[in-house]
Design a protein around this nucleic acid. Structure first.
Lengths: 111, 111
DNA sequence: ACCTTGGTACGAGAGATGTCAAACTACGAT
DNA sequence: ATCGTAGTTTGACATCTCTCGTACCAAGGT
């Protein structure tokens, strides 16, 4: 395989200028998704596969929540083998909405 | 009238320890309510009556949105004469979730 | 007393959301 | 080839949300 093939198969996500504040806030306004985001933030940089979160919902519901987060621009997902890896889009969010993600994460920690 | 009568008739609102992050984020995750909040923030301290916002929805819908914000703990409302005055609960929110409101307001300004 | 103004209450409807079960796909290991 | 693991898809369901129109109430001004 060539070098270009090593690029992870990223799933469709909004470009930075397509990320809407209301959509981001909506994505974060759910306990399950908030937990996903705080878990991802705690494992800074380290990618996590979807089932590594021990969420109190079924697989189908998890798929739903991960998609909401990705389509809002909060996380990035790409396939690796049979798993799907997740990371926070920290850089994009910080550039667009400085301080927002940090404030939410700190707030969630105290919640 | 006595001094105690001058206390504004505040409408029911959650105590600070009853304010939930998910509820606040959900309250902010709506374009109409985001506009209410930014308008209130722009008129710092100055109270605004409900119909002074020029919102693109009917009175009934406005009542709904103001209630969502109040029940989430984002705004405080009290009657004055025939009007109802609104203010941001800046102090409570800053104490609970430091930086969150500011980050959202700055984000909304750039949105 | 009347009317105007600012706001609420009550349905009601269209659509979004969170959840699940069950069947399915895709990849990797054995 | 078979099996297990990880995740998706579909369809369904209950609930919530945003919106409206209409009727209503309450406080002030004339």
């Amino acid at each position: 395989m060539t070098a270009t093939d090593e690029a992870p198969a990223a799933l469709p996500e909004p470009a930075p200028d397509e990320i809407r504040l209301a959509a981001v806030l909506h994505a974060l306004a759910d306990p399950v998704r908030l937990r996903i985001v705080t878990t991802l933030a705690a494992a800074r940089g380290t990618e996590q596969n979807c089932l590594a979160f021990d969420l109190p919902v079924t697989k189908a519901t998890q798929t739903h929540h991960f998609r909401v987060l990705r389509e809002a621009g909060v996380i990035r997902q790409h396939r690796r083998g049979t798993s799907k890896m997740n990371q926070l889009r920290t850089d994009d969010l910080d550039a667009l909405f400085p301080g927002l993600l940090d404030a939410v994460l700190r707030a969630a920690a105290r919640d």
